[in-house]
Design a protein around this nucleic acid. Structure first.
Lengths: 208, 208
DNA sequence: GCCTACATGTAAACCGTTACATGATTAT
DNA sequence: ATAATCATGTAACGGTTTACATGTAGGC
């Protein structure tokens, strides 16, 4: 599990509170790792038990006390050891793929007519295509802002983070291209479909 | 959560035991959804409570009794309703990306010299590249075996499953291409690295 | 003799999400 | 007034993983 490691990485930068970590998570790492404040507070308590971080309570006027967490030497060693260890390939886990897979069975049986299945899938894939396009746009903006070109990025101070961003960009581009493949096929299915209903093209005219 | 839906989909095909489902999971759906026998047995118990499946205990000689589960009409309706509902975009969650992200901090500090970091990353990316290449090869074999060409697949009885397989193929191809991007950059870093150590190219000669 | 396949389960630990709870400050 | 931001937490539930547990049959 990499949550604790991601947190320790963030603490390498500078000491932070649980609140800070949660914010940084959602601002910078969120596209490849997510964590709620809950997970973070619980994990921090565990890391403290293991002496991988230390706490310092800071009183503030007006607002609640802040608990500043710092990574210890043991924490740094722990993180470095993890970096050298081999990891596993992560499975995909996509609801959409389960749906697509199940659609073959559903449209074959009396559950649904294939027209209904196709129009539902088409809508869903349009939606997902757009959501991924939005993510892609965000990542490309970051790329242009912080890394004007790849050569500069590799010579810069954060050569590896640029490669992480590249993964995000590639992933979204590929996902969008796949959505287009699917949508093209769905159009084909629609056009070769046996016409049994009074044919409403999308769902603009309701059957009476 | 789609585990129950994936299980119901498998049961649409034919009645099966928990053991059968676990096997089918690892044989056919495993690249986009995984489940241990544990999860399956528990989920089957829940589905039975909700009357989405029924059980029939079959006595066998020599081996333990088999519990054959079948999907009910209510189960089919439940599945069909799910297919029409919109779903969320899944987050990525990749250990490797966390590692890459953390490597910037590690090689900048006194934790590790950058040479050590680079060679460790290079090995890890070689490994992952190969694992993904193996998966890709498996998927491409399936593609050739069952779907000689896309046109045939779309007119066949399982047009949507072919699109699922396409996702797997695209995903692995893209992942491999990204690994190559990373490996190219790592070579660049290696060559532009200030030489402080007696330079052992990979780790063939140990420092004395 | 040992491992794999068949077949099912319990128990516990751990990870993840959502809701509830508190309480001051600042901006609209 | 109302909402958002700062800041921390408890409680409960649900999903996932790993270990433990049992017992037969067949292949190496």
């Amino acid at each position: 599990m990499a949550l604790s490691h991601a947190m320790l990485s963030l603490l390498m930068d500078k000491p932070q509170s649980g609140y800070d970590l949660a914010k940084n998570f959602s601002e910078s790492i969120s596209f490849f790792w997510k964590a709620t404040h809950q997970q973070i507070y619980r994990e921090l308590a565990k890391l403290e038990e293991q002496n991988l971080v230390t706490v310092e309570t800071i009183e503030q006027d007006g607002r609640p006390d802040k608990k500043l967490y710092s990574i210890t030497e043991a924490g740094k060693t722990f993180l470095a050891a993890w970096l050298l260890q081999p990891g596993e390939v992560m499975p995909i886990k996509e609801d959409l793929l389960v749906k697509l897979w199940a659609s073959d069975l559903a449209s074959g049986s009396s559950l649904m007519d294939s027209h209904k299945t196709i129009t539902a899938l088409r809508q869903e894939f349009h939606r997902h295509r757009q959501l991924h396009a939005e993510k892609l746009a965000t990542y490309e903006q970051i790329e242009q802002k912080y890394y004007q070109n790849a050569a500069q990025a590799s010579c810069g101070q954060q050569p590896y983070r640029y490669l992480v961003l590249r993964r995000g960009i590639r992933y979204e581009q590929d996902y969008i291209a796949w959505c287009d493949e699917v949508l093209t096929q769905l159009e084909l299915e629609l056009s070769s479909e046996p016409l049994s209903e009074p044919l409403s093209n999308d769902s603009e005219s309701k059957p009476v």
